[in-house]
Simulated scan of single mutants.
Amino acid sequence: MPARYDLAVGVPEELEPEPGGEVAAARQGIQSVELAMLVLQALEEGLGPLSLTQVAAAAGMTPSKAHRYLVSLGRVGLVAQSHRSGLYDLGPAMRRLGIESLRRMDEVGLASEHTPGLRDRTTHAVNLAVWGDHGPVLVRWDYGAHPLPITVRLGATMPLLSSSVGRVYLAHLPDTVTGPALEAQLAPEPVTGRIREEIARVRAEVRDRGVALTSGGLIPGLASIAAPVFGADDSLPLVVAIALPARLADPAVLERLQDELLRTTADMAVDLGAADRPGKARTAARGR
């Protein structure tokens, strides 16, 4: 039996199996569920307890309509109301859902959904790195259309100062994390004042621009541009980089690649649970 739609309430009736066939596919959604999500998003974006009036305004509803959704969401624990102040906030069931979602999250897997598209849009190689015991570790490489003067080995540890990926981690991770790895990579030479000045310069440059750029520093003839992917708690689980022949890395090309890279890392961050709010910086230059 084809799906029926109740125009009076705007909600599709439950599908029934067709005789001898499968359940009919339906593209209609449940409008009330989508409206309830507007209420939950209002509470999320409020960054704290809200009054009924504030929830209604943020969700684009009348107070009476918002109140009905708050009551229903409260009954299943997704919303809680303070007995003292009367303000509304996310409830215990929402916290449990969030914790379980984080437990199940495969950060590399989620980000990897975006790398082939970035490769196709730019035609250049794209790689993912995570922080390991001794520095950034390559965990994915998507080959581009242009031959590169490099042999790729997944699991390789990247240098902090001479690679774009390393510079992003150097700019955004604390010294207590990067310091031991940097000292081990520079051994037997000590971390001198000159090197510390270089680190300070790199950090300022990467934070200001939002990306790290290198050309020929790691491999002659290879240029790379890298950007961070921030998680829900502003952690830095991943760095994404585009690698290209240095001869192609003119300013116009680099500007285009930077725009594509930052758009992609912003999408990755949303998939990892980072808030997607207008006006919130989702690049490296977020004032960390």
Rank of each mutant, 00 (worst) to 15 (best):
residue 2 P to Q: 12
residue 2 P to F: 15
residue 3 A to W: 02
residue 3 A to T: 08
residue 6 D to L: 04
residue 9 V to E: 00
residue 10 G to W: 00
residue 13 E to P: 14
residue 17 P to Q: 10
residue 21 G to V: 07
residue 26 A to H: 00
residue 27 R to I: 12
residue 27 R to H: 04
residue 28 Q to T: 12
residue 32 S to K: 01
residue 38 L to V: 13
residue 39 V to D: 14
residue 40 L to P: 15
residue 41 Q to V: 12
residue 44 E to R: 10
residue 44 E to D: 00
residue 49 P to I: 08
residue 49 P to Q: 02
residue 50 L to E: 09
residue 53 T to M: 06
residue 53 T to C: 10
residue 54 Q to W: 04
residue 56 A to R: 08
residue 60 G to N: 06
residue 61 M to Q: 10
residue 68 R to T: 15
residue 72 S to I: 09
residue 75 R to I: 09
residue 78 L to Y: 10
residue 83 H to K: 03
residue 100 E to I: 06
residue 101 S to K: 06
residue 103 R to Q: 08
residue 106 D to K: 02
residue 109 G to V: 03
residue 111 A to H: 08
residue 114 H to G: 14
residue 116 P to G: 02
residue 117 G to M: 13
residue 124 H to P: 06
residue 125 A to H: 03
residue 126 V to I: 05
residue 127 N to Y: 15
residue 127 N to W: 15
residue 128 L to A: 00
residue 131 W to T: 07
residue 135 G to F: 13
residue 135 G to N: 05
residue 139 V to K: 00
residue 140 R to Y: 09
residue 142 D to G: 04
residue 144 G to E: 01
residue 149 P to V: 09
residue 152 V to S: 02
residue 154 L to D: 02
residue 155 G to D: 07
residue 155 G to T: 07
residue 156 A to F: 08
residue 156 A to W: 03
residue 159 P to A: 06
residue 163 S to Y: 09
residue 164 S to E: 07
residue 165 V to L: 10
residue 167 R to G: 11
residue 167 R to M: 13
residue 169 Y to F: 13
residue 172 H to L: 09
residue 177 V to A: 07
residue 182 L to V: 12
residue 187 A to K: 00
residue 188 P to R: 05
residue 190 P to K: 14
residue 190 P to W: 11
residue 191 V to T: 01
residue 194 R to K: 15
residue 194 R to L: 14
residue 196 R to Y: 13
residue 196 R to D: 10
residue 205 E to D: 11
residue 206 V to I: 05
residue 208 D to K: 11
residue 208 D to M: 07
residue 214 T to I: 03
residue 215 S to N: 11
residue 215 S to D: 14
residue 217 G to S: 14
residue 218 L to H: 04
residue 219 I to F: 07
residue 220 P to I: 12
residue 221 G to I: 13
residue 222 L to N: 09
residue 228 P to Y: 03
residue 231 G to S: 04
residue 236 L to V: 12
residue 237 P to M: 14
residue 240 V to S: 01
residue 242 I to N: 00
residue 245 P to V: 13
residue 247 R to H: 10
residue 251 P to N: 11
residue 257 L to H: 03
residue 265 T to D: 12
residue 267 D to G: 10
residue 267 D to F: 10
residue 267 D to K: 12
residue 268 M to G: 02
residue 268 M to D: 04
residue 269 A to H: 08
residue 270 V to E: 07
residue 271 D to S: 15
residue 272 L to N: 05
residue 274 A to L: 13
residue 276 D to Q: 13
residue 277 R to T: 14
residue 277 R to E: 08
residue 277 R to L: 14
residue 277 R to Q: 08
residue 285 A to H: 05
residue 288 R to T: 13
